[in-house]
Simulated scan of single mutants.
Amino acid sequence: MQQLRCQVCAHSARTRHGIIFLAGPDEARPQEAVVRTAQPPVCLRHARTAAEQCPHLDGRPTVFLAQSAPLYGVIGTPYQYSDDGLQAISATDEALPYGHPDLRWFLASQMVRRLRAYTVITLDDLPDP
């Protein structure tokens, strides 16, 4: 995720058209002003394979072709000190942005990117690898 490598083959996911991110059919809302994802991108060669093989994508993903996808923050488990020592607090799926003061009490499990300058396309719109 940090180096924008394909989640299938680990080669660069950058294409001359942008970076391909896939989201579940009911997961992303492209009409909203902010789109964030914890799913690593895919390369052009593996976009269709990922869509077919990943149960989360259900064979009908939302396909984002992003020109810009800066790192935003992390998803994970927050912790706090209590009388019994260090205690985990119930986690949510909300991303904690980098620079947030609570980040030092956070055990990250996934990086999150914010998609900017993107186009929503279909798998059929992708050029052949």
Score class of each variant (00 low, 15 high):
residue 62 T to Q: 11
residue 121 I to Q: 10
residue 48 R to C: 09
residue 111 M to Q: 15
residue 117 A to M: 12
residue 46 H to C: 11
residue 17 H to V: 10
residue 30 P to C: 00
residue 110 Q to M: 12
residue 53 Q to N: 15
residue 84 D to H: 08
residue 96 L to H: 01
residue 125 D to T: 02
residue 118 Y to N: 13
residue 124 D to E: 14
residue 91 A to E: 09
residue 36 R to C: 07
residue 116 R to F: 04
residue 107 L to N: 13
residue 78 P to R: 12
residue 20 I to M: 02
residue 62 T to F: 00
residue 74 V to M: 14
residue 38 A to E: 08
residue 129 P to Y: 09
residue 41 P to V: 03
residue 52 E to Q: 15
residue 62 T to D: 04
residue 92 T to R: 12
residue 64 F to C: 13
residue 59 G to N: 05
residue 106 F to N: 10
residue 40 P to Q: 05
residue 126 L to C: 05
residue 77 T to Y: 10
residue 120 V to M: 11
residue 63 V to G: 07
residue 55 P to H: 08
residue 41 P to H: 07
residue 34 V to S: 05
residue 21 F to M: 12
residue 7 Q to L: 03
residue 118 Y to D: 12
residue 121 I to K: 10
residue 85 G to C: 10
residue 46 H to I: 02
residue 92 T to M: 09
residue 48 R to E: 12
residue 92 T to S: 15
residue 111 M to V: 09
residue 5 R to P: 00
residue 49 T to P: 00
residue 28 A to V: 01
residue 60 R to S: 10
residue 91 A to C: 05
residue 124 D to T: 10
residue 105 W to C: 07
residue 104 R to Q: 13
residue 102 D to L: 12
residue 78 P to V: 10
residue 97 P to W: 07
residue 116 R to Y: 05
residue 73 G to I: 06
residue 129 P to A: 11
residue 94 E to P: 01
residue 16 R to S: 15
residue 81 Y to Q: 15
residue 115 L to Y: 00
residue 74 V to T: 13
residue 111 M to P: 06
residue 70 P to I: 11
residue 124 D to G: 07
residue 16 R to N: 13
residue 20 I to S: 01
